[in-house]
């Protein structure tokens, strides 16, 4: 199994990727938007009248086919890139990461709650750690730093409450 890169080397590489995105596309990479695109289309199938009556959801549905959305393809690339990285480093294994005393069911329940919270939060903030904090921070968007302040304060507080999952 290969060792991890120096975080500064990885940061240099990641910074060049974000820079390339700004140069080629005019905007930085994101992640949560792809989940919003998928969620909107699921609602469009399950409850089409309700979805179209909601201006926000309808906006996603009217943006065209799912596979023609830049952010959807980009996030697909992130999954492939992560898989490629894990395979070539000999790190690919089926496992559930958690603290030593945490039962799998509890870890999965909290993962679900955390995922739902992150999904909702990313719509409130118009993005997530990738699109707002990283891409926004790189062009010194004030909202990115507000996002980051909130992220740190709540992250430390909630992490303390759920420390038995991770430690």
């Amino acid at each position: 199994m290969r060792t991890y890169w120096s975080p500064y080397l990885a940061g240099l590489g990641l910074g060049l990727v974000v820079l390339a995105s700004y140069l080629l596309m005019g905007f930085g990479p994101g992640a949560s938007g792809a989940f919003a695109h998928v969620a909107a289309r699921v609602e469009g199938v399950v409850a089409p009248a309700h979805a179209l009556a909601n201006g926000y959801i309808a906006g996603y549905l009217e943006s065209g086919r799912l596979w023609a959305q830049w952010i959807v393809i980009e996030v697909l690339g992130i999954v492939l890139g992560g898989l490629l990285g894990a395979l070539t480093a000999g790190r690919f294994r089926w496992r559930l990461e958690s603290g030593p005393a945490t039962r799998s069911a509890r870890r999965l329940l909290f993962a679900f709650l955390g995922g739902a919270t992150v999904g909702f939060a990313s719509r409130v903030a118009q993005g997530c750690t990738s699109g707002v904090a990283l891409s926004g921070g790189a062009v010194l968007a004030p909202g990115a730093w507000a996002f980051f302040a909130g992220f740190m304060v709540a992250g430390f507080a909630v992490a303390w409450l759920v420390r038995r999952i991770w430690l």
Binding site: S98, L113, T117, A121, A125, Q126, F148
Partner: peptide, 13 residues
């Protein structure tokens, strides 16, 4: 949104 996302991040990992 950042605060909520930080909370979810700590919950889910």
């Amino acid at each position: 949104g950042g605060a909520l996302l930080g909370a979810g991040f700590a919950l889910g990992g």
